[in-house]
Write a protein that binds this DNA or RNA. Structure first.
Length: 491
RNA sequence: GGUCGCGUGGCCGAGUGGCUAGGCAGCGGUCUGCAAAACCGUGUACGGCGGUUCGAAUCCGCCCGUGACCUCCA
């Protein structure tokens, strides 16, 4: 595998050359959504970031097993209030639905949205509720190794004991003593020996409707366990890449490391990757802050922050124009700017097939190709890769006008490069056919275009402009080009 | 309070100790009956104050602003 892909490893806080454990196989695990409400822009950033990584790894020739979980159990919502109620079950009661009905509804919604955004389906999409046994087995191992204790039917992870042999807090750069000094005293934690300890298994209260039998109690697994259990099951005890949102870094991923290491006695993830947050008005977009925009709203424009709807590819391109480790601020202006840029890019790539090869090449396509791959190899720097594609656009237009030429070999190479990066790696899709497929409508439009052409030939500009303006009012824009008049639907 | 990050031209957003990021907008031009579209060209910006250096927006210090995590969160 000849490449120099470097990835920023959250664990070491450095870019590191990526070397898979068992090349050409790569194991990739990404924390997916908790399916209890509609997908929003933040979820999509996670999905598109790691979809692009998945695509690039495939492009480099790796055989990737991409596992993205669906969280449908656990994740205590409000331990502070002592209810110990599970997010899924709370929403279920609210809507008078079975928990699994909620799960099903939102799971399908996520999958649909992600498909519309042209993300490739993961190799495996495991659900936590389907892996209760595996989670219990892992708890057993952790207890056998002496890193967990049971209290009243609940099992907690023992940070202090773990920290004697291993180091807790490496991923997030925290020290156990500092954390102890700064811990808020929360109620409802009397069972824990230390405030830092976290639940591996929780005994279910009467009101808790998602529950499973276990040797400790009828209950449910702790917040972080599913990822440890499922990643181990499908990718092995030690695997290559684990990804997720930056907000999961602590405590979720920190606990995941501790659990897994405690159960198997060795490291489990080699490269940790975290995508940064989408912000809106400078603040993190989150369900808990009630400032999120769902994908449905983005597509339709039905949100007070939205001036209008945006296409899936527009959203995908917008996200890719920022580096995944930077925060990205949402705005209509930014979205509309990338919409125009995307249109320009896709139009140019469509035009690639119209370029005639010349006898010899008057320019070199090597620099743009090399720079583009350098960018992707540099921690998946999609903004720079895209900048290189725009350089490619400039070349395409020079070639179209005959100001420069490429010999057949170079043209083929250049064309393949542009299409591969754009469609295969970045996952952008060709422009939708804006012309109507309705032959009657198409014919009518052609008649009007021809009439207008006649009028213009006769210098009857009043008539020609009337046709143009009236069509515009109907949402059809006429575009006069050298090759003739075309039309596009607008708005 | 603790930990970590960010502050780039009108907007979004890369990057870097000296070598063009890019997109959008603006401006100029080509094309056009006019316009739109399309295409070409064009912008020495890096929060403030000090310091290191031949040279810093890029390194260091201080300050200001802002955000993330520390509770579920992509």
């Amino acid at each position: 595998m000849e490449h120099k892909l470097s990835l920023y490893n959250s664990l070491t806080r450095k870019k590191e050359l990526f070397k898979p454990l068992h090349s050409p196989h790569v194991g990739l695990y990404v924390c997916g959504p908790t399916v209890y409400s509609e997908p929003h822009l933040g979820h999509v950033r996670m999905a598109i970031t790691f979809d692009t990584l998945f695509r690039y790894l495939l492009h480099l020739g790796y055989k990737v097993r991409y596992v993205r979980n669906i969280t449908d159990v656990g994740h205590l919502e409000d331990e502070v209030a002592g209810t110990g109620e599970d997010k899924i079950s709370k929403k279920a009661k609210l809507e008078q639905l079975e928990p699994m009905e909620v799960v099903q509804k939102y799971k399908l919604m996520f999958q649909e949205v992600l498909q519309i955004l042209n993300t490739l389906p993961p190799s495996i999409e495991p659900q936590a509720s389907g892996h209760i046994i595996e989670q219990q087995q892992m708890i057993r191992r952790i207890m056998d190794n002496g890193y967990a204790y049971e209290v009243n039917g609940s099992v907690y992870f023992d940070i202090e004991t773990y920290n004697k042999k291993y180091t807790y807090g490496q991923l997030s750069g925290r020290k156990v003593e500092d954390m102890l000094a700064n811990t808020r005293q929360l109620e409802g934690q009397q069972e824990k020996r230390s405030p830092l300890d976290f639940a591996l298994w929780k005994k279910a209260g009467d009101e808790h409707i998602m529950r499973w039998p276990s040797e400790w109690s009828e209950g449910f697994p702790g917040w972080h366990l599913e990822c440890s259990a499922m990643s181990t099951k499908y990718l092995g005890e030690t695997f290559d890449i684990h990804g997720g949102g930056l907000d999961l870094l602590f405590p979720h991923h920190e606990c995941e490391i501790a659990q897994t290491v405690a159960s198997q006695g060795k490291d489990h993830v080699r490269y940790w990757m975290h995508n940064n947050m989408i912000t809106i008005d400078g603040q993190k977009m989150a369900r808990s802050l009630h400032n999120f925009i769902t994908l449905k709203e983005l597509f339709t424009g039905s949100h007070e922050k939205l001036e209008r709807g945006y296409t899936p590819m527009n959203i995908r391109f917008f996200l890719l124009q920022a580096h995944y480790r930077s925060t990205l601020d949402f705005s209509n202006e930014a979205l509309q700017a990338s919409e125009k840029g995307l249109h320009k890019l896709l139009k140019a790539i469509e035009n690639l097939d119209r370029i005639q090869a010349g006898k010899q090449s008057t320019l070199s396509v090597v620099p743009v190709i090399e720079k583009c791959f350098e960018a992707l190899n540099d921690d998946l720097n999609t903004p720079i890769a895209i900048a290189q594609l725009f350089e490619g656009v400039r070349l395409i237009n020079l070639l179209l006008e005959g100001k420069e030429t490429l010999d057949p070999t170079d043209l083929e190479r250049f064309s393949t490069f542009m299409k591969n990066i754009c469609y295969e790696v970045l996952g952008l899709q060709p422009l939708e056919q804006s012309l109507t497929h309705d032959s009657a409508e198409e014919g009518l439009l052609q008649i009007l275009v021809d009439l207008r052409l006649d009028a213009r030939k006769n210098k009857d500009f009043a008539t020609s402009d009337l046709i143009r303006d009236k069509l515009n009012e109907l949402g059809i824009a006429l575009k006069d080009t050298k090759e003739g008049t075309t039309w596009e639907r607008i708005g």
